[in-house]
Design a protein around this nucleic acid. Structure first.
Length: 602
RNA sequence: GCACUCGUAGUUCAAUUGGAUAGAAUACCAGAUUUCGGCUCUGGGGGUUGAGGGUUCGAGUCCUUCCGAGUGCACCA
């Protein structure tokens, strides 16, 4: 039984004994004690004044006394207003560490991870367009998605990672048109560029000339809106799209060629950032889906047809608008497509939950999508979740995907990895590493820095990414945590050399008293499982990031305040070595949940 | 115009979902250690939680009115 359970059982018994009151399951909850008070767990008694017919401080006093007398887990308690702060006996903490170490030793599942629960989650993330390379916003998406994959697996779910590539439409036709006009047979090889960057270059080219044409037209007296529609280039691009839809051989060949370049470029980036997928969908395959759902909706009376032949759904009673699901000409729109894709996916891999990692500008779209599926009576509709995230800004200014000032993902990674290289070459202990191993380490540090920085913030919130701050060795950063881990690794190595088995929890089981900071570290360790659980339930990797940082900091305090190998008492020494082991493993696994690696040395 | 999201130390972020004196990191100042690893640790100043009103034992959190920022409101995706 874990610590929290032991305490709540005690509290329930106390209420039974003193007030003849029986609590329902899960009704008694504890909170962590604030730092300025003694104790680790706090019971808030305000809500129970009616049950005890006493003022809260009296209730707290009564419960505290009962726990101290009737259980052996409470060393002391104090009451502040209605708050009952509990100090646990040292033996409780010693035993708790023993359990953590044993779980790590048994090795079936890492400490804090759950057994398979039989539930299946599909998660969609990344979802790029093929007309330009990945940028900083995509990185937040990819890292969030990949972290959630790890976290959901740790919570016992079977996870299926999917990516849907937006490979068709007017945007890729723009790149194609510019390439036809200006490309003169250039290839990624001849240009010495990654394929996605090459195609992106022509997209920018298109945009430049297109804007020039608009300005020209405006100068001739057109309204801007009209100029945007009438510019010759956009008409040409639309023509190209129509040719593509008619399966014109030449157009399709060019489309395939350019998309092939982009995929090669994406794959290189995915590999570099350590992201992969189980299944990839292409919009060129799915954009016509959803028509039969429209028929079904009409039959069920969920949708209705207007006189002009277009099909709609009225969601005004859900406080949403009317939404078009089929055009007058009978073709589908984005919403139709997403309905069809959801259906397709459920058939491909019947899931209990489906998570869409998509930016918050699409909040409304997903609200509507989920509502429609519910109205259609889809059994899986309740398991759908939109993991919405905010935009990423840079210190130099805001960045938007549609404007030219986008920060390219590859460039950014290179820059940060380079900074990690510089710092580590200057200061690191990497002499015995081969140049290959060293390069791997720099990647680990640079990528870890970006991932951690993007993941430590609540996904919902718009955030500011500071590349320089992210690689700092001090502060709330990945390198700080990785460094702490590497240092513990050195300690464990020393312990191994001295013949100490860090997994041997019997070696310290008789230890009677421990240092307050040791207690604090063990307390943090005991919280890991519920952090994993929370991060999964709330879809917020930031919970894990914050936790590991706290753990690393607490360990560092322990490290300066308490000697390890100079300790005379063997029990205490062994306890500290095992504590170090448990912390190192938890940091490593916690970082792993964020997709970040922890080096043994740096 | 309508809808949604957000507003917290100089800056970047937290706040256990309604709990205690709103916490970290960073920057700045002052110390300790100079040993297991460049480090790390301790202390200090810094806040009317955008503003007002309400709900209750208790509000950064819920309701409301303003102010400010962002996003979405295409027979685009």
């Amino acid at each position: 039984m874990d610590i929290e359970n032991q305490i709540t059982e005690g509290i329930k018994a106390a209420f039974q004994y003193h007030y003849q009151h029986t609590f329902a399951e899960g009704e008694v909850s504890l909170q962590p004690t604030r730092k300025d008070f003694a104790g680790s767990h706090t019971f808030v008694t305000f809500p129970y004044a009616r049950i005890s017919s006493q003022i809260p401080p009296q209730t707290a006093e009564t419960i505290g006394n009962y726990l101290k007398e009737h259980t052996d887990i409470i060393k002391n308690f104090n009451v502040v207003k209605g708050f009952l702060n509990l100090e646990l006996a040292d033996s409780v903490w010693v035993k708790a560490l023993g359990e953590v170490v044993r779980e790590y030793q048994s090795g079936e599942l890492p400490y804090g991870f759950q057994r398979k629960n039989g539930q299946k989650v599909m998660i969609e993330f990344s979802s790029p367009n093929t007309n330009k390379p990945l940028h900083l916003g995509h990185l937040r998406n990819n890292f969030l998605g990949y972290a959630m994959v790890q976290i959901l697996e740790a919570n016992g779910y079977a996870v299926h990672k999917v990516n849907i590539i937006n490979d068709r439409g007017i945007h890729i036709c723009k790149s194609m048109l510019a390439y036809q006009k200006l490309g003169s047979g250039e290839t990624p090889e001849s240009a010495g560029m990654k394929g996605d960057h090459l195609v992106g270059k022509y997209y920018v080219e298109f945009d430049k000339h297109y804007k020039a044409q608009i300005q020209e037209l405006v100068a001739q007296g057109y309204e801007e809106e009209q100029a945007k529609k009438e510019a010759p280039l956009i008409k040409e691009a639309q023509g190209l799209l129509q040719q593509w839809e008619r399966s014109d051989a030449e157009t399709v060949a060019l489309w395939k060629k350019m998309n092939g370049w982009v995929y090669a470029g994406f794959d290189a980036t995915y590999q570099k950032i350590g992201v992969s997928f189980d299944q990839i969908y292409y919009e060129s395959d799915t954009y016509l889906l959803g028509k039969d759902i429209v028929d079904e909706g009409l039959a069920k009376g969920v949708f209705y047809r207007k006189d002009d032949g277009s099909v709609w759904i009225d969601l005004t009673d859900e406080k949403l608008d009317e939404k078009l699901v089929l055009r007058t000409d009978g073709t589908s729109v984005y919403m139709t497509q997403d309905l069809g894709t959801a259906e397709l996916r459920y058939r491909d891999w019947p899931f209990d939950k489906m998570v869409y990692v998509v930016g918050n500008e699409q909040n409304y779209h997903f609200k509507v999508l989920f509502t429609i599926l519910k109205k259609l009576g889809r059994s899986y509709a309740d398991g759908l979740y939109h993991l919405s995230y905010g935009m990423v800004d840079l210190p130099s200014g805001k960045m938007k995907s549609r404007e030219g000032t986008v920060v390219d993902a590859d460039d950014l990674i290179d820059e940060v990895v380079n900074q990690a290289r510089k710092k580590t070459e200057e200061l690191g202990k990497i002499d015995e590493l081969s140049s290959e191993q060293a390069n791997e380490l720099f990647q680990m540090l640079g990528l870890g820095a970006i991932k951690y920085f993007l993941l430590k913030v609540d996904p919902k919130k718009r955030m500011l990414f500071n590349p320089e701050e992210s690689v700092q060795l001090q502060g709330d950063t990945a390198p700080f945590i990785q460094y702490s881990h590497a240092r513990i690794a050195a300690i464990l190595q020393k312990a191994a050399q001295e013949g100490i088995d860090a997994f041997d929890s019997d070696a310290f089981s008789k230890l009677e008293s421990i240092h307050p900071i040791e207690q604090e570290v063990v307390e943090l360790l005991t919280l890991f499982p519920q952090k994993v659980q929370l991060a999964g339930a709330e879809y917020t990797p930031s919970v894990i990031a914050q936790y590991i940082f706290e753990l690393a900091k607490a360990y560092n305090r322990f490290y300066t305040e308490v000697p390890i190998f100079a300790e005379q008492d063997s029990s205490a020494l062994r306890f500290r070595v095992s504590l170090s082991l448990a912390v190192a493993k938890t940091i490593r696994n916690g970082l792993g949940l964020l997709g970040i690696q922890a080096p043994e040395q740096m």
